[in-house]
Design a protein around this nucleic acid. Sequence first.
DNA 1: GTTTAATTACGAAGATTTTCGTAGCAAAAT
DNA 2: ATTTTGCTACGAAAATCTTCGTAATTAAAC
Lengths: 129, 129
Amino acid sequence: MNLKSKFKPTDAELEILRVLWKEGGSTVRLINEILNAKREVGYTTTLKFLQIMEQKGMVKVDRSSRTHLYTALIREDETQKHLLDELLESAFGGSAKKLVMQALGNNKTSQKELEDIKNLIKQLEGGKQ
Amino acid sequence: MNLKSKFKPTDAELEILRVLWKEGGSTVRLINEILNAKREVGYTTTLKFLQIMEQKGMVKVDRSSRTHLYTALIREDETQKHLLDELLESAFGGSAKKLVMQALGNNKTSQKELEDIKNLIKQLEGGKQ
DNA sequence: GTTTAATTACGAAGATTTTCGTAGCAAAAT
DNA sequence: ATTTTGCTACGAAAATCTTCGTAATTAAAC
């Protein structure tokens, strides 16, 4: 499977990855139950996705027990970065400023979080001088 | 066509929307030529997309002349917001902070742009107290 | 006025993504 | 041991997205 797609999960794949990132190694049953809290998904649908994701190198499987254990092979922050970069290019023409302002704009980002962001910016500015 | 999809352009649709947002009302030929600067796309492919986008309510067509004129019906900032919100939920679990820090993190956002963002934050903090 | 060129309409093939049904095993329960 | 339950494998249908070929029509050029 090609490298590109490894970091470009589809919507359904991303849903599953989020479970794996949160829960760590999980069985199909657990993953499927968590997904079903949000929306109805058949068990074999979830299983099929996991098998596809293994092909793509997104997850690895431990088959030592009959009940297989799936674990994410791509990192959450790395995947976020890829998806964000893509959106940055495709929708914001590469302007991180526009994107950030849009993200903060209507949003209820907390005082403390804004503080954290300010600190990051200070750091970035420091590095530039 | 349902409302949801109106603000959720596919990749190919977004490419076209970006042209329309930049150029304003445009002919199929112009749009196709601009697209072809980036990658090869057949003329009828572009035309077909525009026709689909009309169905979805993303663009409107002026058919008064034989050479039709297409114009975007959805706004750039609104569309950006929708796509961003979606990514925020699907990949960042709703944390705008994480998203923003990721966006600024590796990026070469300019001094002035960082300044602008700081000002926005100041404004946001002001409103909260 | 005929030929040539440009434009739109439309169907459909190909590709990708999402979804599940069924079969075949393995384990657990009786 | 036989039945029942639970799990994986696999193929394939359904849905969506991308791409183009062909036909029909209109305008322009000659």
